[in-house]
């Protein structure tokens, strides 16, 4: 199947500052990709380029379209709302539904109503009168009620309480996701989406540091906690990162035979958060 997103040499400059620097990646249908990076890594710039919200340099195709010049057509099949601050405060919730239903061919108004009803959100209130958490629920109800081929979520659960978060991710995996859809999600709460993702893209200073599937992560990366007496021996296997923990040093390996590592202790697969920190503090792969 044709890729959902294809980027080559994608670059975004703000004057002299290069926010995204010749980035390339491919996202295929049916994948849930986490775009993970520290603040200022260029995540927002990439998302905006992908959705045609801002001009860019380089080659980019999203759902087969050139996003900047075909934004309106692209938005028929993609679903994204940057964050709750862009919701027009004067707009009433019910009118927001009316309007989106009026202009969007794939918006399922009954579904949005059901989602809002389940969360007990008053429909006749203006968006500016709602609390941050409630606004986020409206935001998510709108985005999730679009039958899109590509769903883009930027820090989707920011401001949601624990229960709402849980509900959201349940809805996302159980109702929304299927093999024809793809999701691109950015978040700082990596632990939350770890079980959901099929692929990860690590971004740092405008460049991609790691682009891999989670299956590959499990096959390639390993961590071992090594005591002081074996440390130099373990270091000979060239870990790409070290982290001190009480009584041991945790070493991070890339592509080293697990049987060899087993000699130093229990081998485990690093969590995405740990891998992210390790990758970013050790420089580009």
């Amino acid at each position: 199947m044709a890729p959902v997103i294809e980027a080559r040499d994608l670059t975004k400059r703000y004057g002299a500052h290069v926010a995204v620097d010749r980035v390339g990646f491919v996202i295929r249908p049916g994948r849930i990709v986490g775009l993970i990076g520290p603040n200022g890594a260029g995540k927002t710039s990439i998302l905006r380029a992908l959705l045609g919200l801002a001009p860019y340099e380089g080659y980019l195709r999203v759902l087969g379209r050139e996003p900047f010049h075909e934004r309106a057509a692209l938005m028929c099949e993609a679903s994204f709302i940057p964050d709750i601050d862009v919701l027009p405060g004067w707009l009433r919730v019910d009118r927001a539904l009316d309007f989106v239903a009026g202009v969007h061919p794939r918006f399922r108004r009954d579904r949005a109503r059901a989602l809002l009803g389940k969360a007990g959100i008053p429909l006749e209130r203006r968006l500016r009168e709602l609390s941050k958490g409630v606004k986020t629920q409206v935001h998510l109800a709108l985005t999730m009620s679009i039958d899109a081929r590509l769903l883009v979520l930027d820090e989707p659960t920011l401001g949601l309480d624990l229960i709402a978060r849980r509900h959201f991710y349940e809805a996302l995996t159980e109702d929304y996701m299927n093999e024809t859809r793809s999701i691109l999600v950015t978040t700082h709460q990596v632990e939350e989406i770890e079980n959901l993702l099929t692929d990860i893209l690590f971004l740092d200073k405008g460049r991609i540091v790691l682009d891999t599937s989670l299956d590959e992560v499990a096959a390639r990366y390993a961590t071992v906690a090594v005591g002081a007496e074996q440390l130099s021996e373990a270091r000979a296997l060239r870990p790409f990162h070290e982290r001190r923990s009480p009584g041991a040093t945790v070493l991070y390996f890339d592509g080293v035979d697990r049987a060899k590592l087993g000699a130093f202790g229990d081998v485990s697969v690093p969590s995405i958060a740990d891998l992210f920190v390790a990758k970013l503090s050790s420089g580009p792969a």
Binding site: R71, C76, P82, V86, L87, G89, H104
Partner: peptide, 14 residues
């Protein structure tokens, strides 16, 4: 008021 980004995320041309 930043709402331009909301409107632009809907299939409505400039």
């Amino acid at each position: 008021d930043h709402s331009i980004l909301f409107w632009k995320c809907l299939p409505i041309s400039d």
